[in-house]
């Protein structure tokens, strides 16, 4: 599903250029659950952003489902993301001004899905995540665990083939963290490819493969 070939990413400021990824070669198959680990600043999140088409590599090739996507324009990247990639963040990143249900519906609006269908899918997903009773609440009215369930619901509501999770349990207690990992595992069992960045070895244990990174390299 994912093929990275000699991916480099350099961040430049006026004074200094920082090489965040240095010649990454990586292949991830369909329905694989991959954990990426490594110390802070090693390039895990940068790699995840490139995988999610949120950022583009400075050099190298990136093929997603056989299509080269490394040099797409921003608008084209957005179009590829729609429906194909779901994201789960450490800090949930729900929109404060929208209800839980509206947050979950968000990816579907960009697929131009009719409102009734959107609503039905969102409701179903919330039920699956067991937070349907909180559908009309705003994010700040939810606990951390509930917010992350909502965020996962949003990530998978459009049935993406790939879910990218950036430390999904980082802001949760162990009980909620376990539940979230259980949900991800469940999604993986349903056939979704998952790439997860984590510091937590226990969470990494849910993955079929763990990639260690250090100073922009896969080690």
């Amino acid at each position: 599903m994912i093929e990275l070939e000699n991916i480099c990413k350099t961040f430049r400021t006026d004074e200094v250029a920082t090489l965040a990824l240095d010649g990454i070669d990586l292949r991830i198959d369909d329905n694989e659950f991959v954990a990426i680990m490594g110390p802070s600043g090693c390039g895990k999140s940068t790699l995840l952003n490139i995988l999610g088409l949120l950022d583009s590599p400075t050099s190298g090739n990136y093929r997603l489902s056989g299509t080269e996507v490394g040099r797409l324009t921003e608008n084209d990247r957005a179009r590829v993301r729609r429906g194909q990639i779901g994201f789960v963040f450490q800090s949930f990143n729900l929109i404060d001004e929208l209800t839980v249900e509206e947050n979950v519906e968000l990816p579907l609006t960009y697929l131009k899905m009719p409102a009734a269908e959107r609503k039905a899918k969102a409701t179903a997903m919330l039920e699956r995540m067991e937070i349907a009773h909180r559908a009309h609440h705003f994010p700040h009215q939810l606990s951390g665990g509930q917010q992350q369930r909502a965020a996962i619901a949003r990530a998978v509501v459009a049935s993406p083939k790939l879910i990218l999770a950036d430390e999904p349990t980082g802001n949760l207690d162990s009980k909620n963290g376990k539940e979230v990992m259980g949900l991800l595992n469940e999604l993986h069992s349903d056939g979704t490819t998952i790439v997860m960045v984590t510091h937590n070895a226990h969470d990494a244990g849910y993955a079929g493969r763990t990639i260690e990174m250090f100073d922009g390299h896969i080690v």
Partner: peptide, 16 residues
């Protein structure tokens, strides 16, 4: 800014 970023992550474009 964050609102826009989240929307863009989930498929919105600059024009939208």
């Amino acid at each position: 800014r964050k609102d826009m970023a989240i929307r863009k992550v989930f498929g919105s474009t600059n024009r939208l």
